[in-house]
């Protein structure tokens, strides 16, 4: 996983609440068996019409948001299906950080596993960011994970909270499986003490 330390990028304001993972990547694009190949499909229905023609008035088509890497959105971002394809698609499209008042649990976990930082800020601060990014051309934010801050070049400075372990893994790009396997002895000990009534399956 690519470590996340600090990132500065253009903000794309997606002013809606409850952005679900079907919106981030529709189910019909999930049939691949690879982790890649989803970036072009991200927010497909917001970017293309039913015939696959780019929507000229889509926020994703506006030149000032081209190359945006910081997504700012409303509360409950990433709700719905557990599909990690949503995180893969956002990363592949180029996003490194998402700022919202709240995130759905499974999405936040998936994002962290893929070096995509989810930043929770109070609703009124997010609203201000949405408004600034909608009016100020090329508006950029800097997200610093070490400091846990979001800043812009105009004096804005917000501090955010993050679970220390998630922060540690993101900063160092750590693979959780490798970490857990170091506790193999603990797992083996636990296994030896499991009750016998629990189901087992044979292939």
């Amino acid at each position: 996983m690519e470590p996340f330390t600090e990132h500065t990028g253009v903000v794309l304001p997606l002013d809606r609440a409850d952005v679900d993972t079907d919106l981030i990547i529709p189910a019909r694009f999930l049939k691949r068996i690879e982790r890649t190949g989803y970036g072009d499909m991200v927010f497909y229905t917001l970017r293309f019409d039913a015939g696959g023609t780019p929507l000229a008035d889509s926020i994703f088509a506006k030149p000032q948001y081209r190359g945006a890497t910081v997504l700012v959105a409303g509360p409950n971002f990433g709700c719905g299906s557990s599909r990690e394809h949503a995180a893969w698609a956002l990363r592949e499209y180029g996003f490194r950080a998402i700022i919202a008042p709240s995130f759905a649990n499974i999405f936040a976990a998936n994002a962290a596993q893929n070096g995509l930082l989810t930043v929770v800020l109070p609703e009124e601060r997010v609203r201000q960011m949405l408004e600034t990014a909608a009016t100020r051309e090329g508006y950029q934010l800097t997200v610093n994970l070490e400091q846990q801050t979001v800043t812009d070049g105009f004096g804005r400075r917000d501090r955010f909270e993050i679970d220390p372990f998630t922060k540690h893994c993101l900063l160092h790009g750590l693979d959780a499986i490798g970490l857990t396997l170091r506790a193999s002895d603990d797992i083996a000990r636990f296994e030896a003490s499991r009750p016998g009534w629990m189901p087992r399956v044979t292939a």
Binding site: S82, E84, Q113, I177
Partner: peptide, 20 residues
């Protein structure tokens, strides 16, 4: 618990799930 694909890999490899 519903989990994502990286967590699926984690459970396959370790039969455990790290959860806050």
């Amino acid at each position: 618990f519903g989990i994502g694909t990286t967590e699926v890999e984690h459970v396959l490899a370790t039969q455990t799930l790290p959860l806050r």
